Amino acid sequence: MITSSFSSLLPICQAAYQNDFAQVWRWVKEDNNYVNVQDGFNGDTPLICACRRGNMRIVSFLLRRNANVNLKNQKERTCLHYAVRKRFTFFDYLLIVLLMPVLLIGYFLMVSKTKQNEALVRMLLDAGIEVNATDCYGCTALHYACEMKNQTLIPLLLEAHADPLIKNKHGESSLDIARRLKFSQIEFMLRKTS
């Protein structure tokens, strides 16, 4: 694992965040060690940056170049935490709202974005990410999926042996979150596996 100052590492992390595949490819071609480099600002890796934005092509490329999926940033989060927490951007919502009346194009856009996020999480799980890794708040990816009422990602995480009984620093498990927020379908899924 290479660490250095923010200024020297900013280009590959920034390129991964901005979905600039050509720049990411150039940096990795120059030195494959850049795949797991962590910036000096918040400890993000190029993989974490790409997962924050859902940049699938870059994630796939970095995984093929043996990016370490289990590296954590300064908040002790892995790329899975960010992939699960990924939400629609303001621009996505705007497009969905504007295109909804037009032959349900907005609906199909929303479904497409949801499927992309599901594929992103599946790629990380297939790459061997530690599904029960906790962040600085003691939260796992399953905690965040429950908070977001994400019924498409929860079954994937459970299938990968996510533990619904791990408690965060507030003493709350994923099951407790589902119960507190009255997400009965999610609570049922979590109870079935615990």
Rank of each mutant, 00 (worst) to 15 (best):
N33D: 14
R180H: 10
A16R: 03
M123A: 02
N36S: 14
K72R: 08
A119Y: 03
C136W: 11
S173I: 07
A127I: 07
A162C: 15
D135E: 13
D163Y: 03
I177Q: 04
E159D: 04
A133R: 03
R26Y: 05
F183I: 07
M110L: 13
R65H: 09
T3Q: 15
T3M: 15
R180Y: 08
D92T: 09
L142F: 02
A16L: 01
K113L: 13
R65P: 07
I166P: 14
N42R: 05
R180G: 12
Y144M: 14
L99Y: 01
S194R: 11
K182Y: 09
L120Q: 06
E172D: 00
G106F: 01
V59M: 13
C13P: 02
P11F: 12
P11C: 04
Q14I: 07
H143Q: 14
T152C: 12
V97H: 00
N132G: 10
I105Q: 06
P101Y: 02
N132Y: 11
Y137R: 12
A67V: 15
L63V: 02
N32G: 03
L153V: 08
L99A: 10
N68I: 03
T78K: 02
L71R: 10
H170V: 05
R57V: 14
A160L: 06
R57Y: 11
A67K: 08
Q74P: 01
L142P: 11
D126R: 07
A160Y: 02
R52G: 01
Y144I: 09
K75H: 06
L63C: 07
E172N: 08
T45K: 03
I2T: 06
Y93M: 12
T45H: 08
A162L: 05
N32P: 09
M110N: 05
E130F: 00
F108D: 10
N36I: 02
D176A: 07
I129A: 06
W25H: 07
L157N: 01
Y17H: 10
A50W: 03
L158A: 04
I186W: 01
M189I: 05
N73L: 11
G54E: 10
K72I: 10
I154T: 11
T134I: 15
V84S: 11
L62F: 02
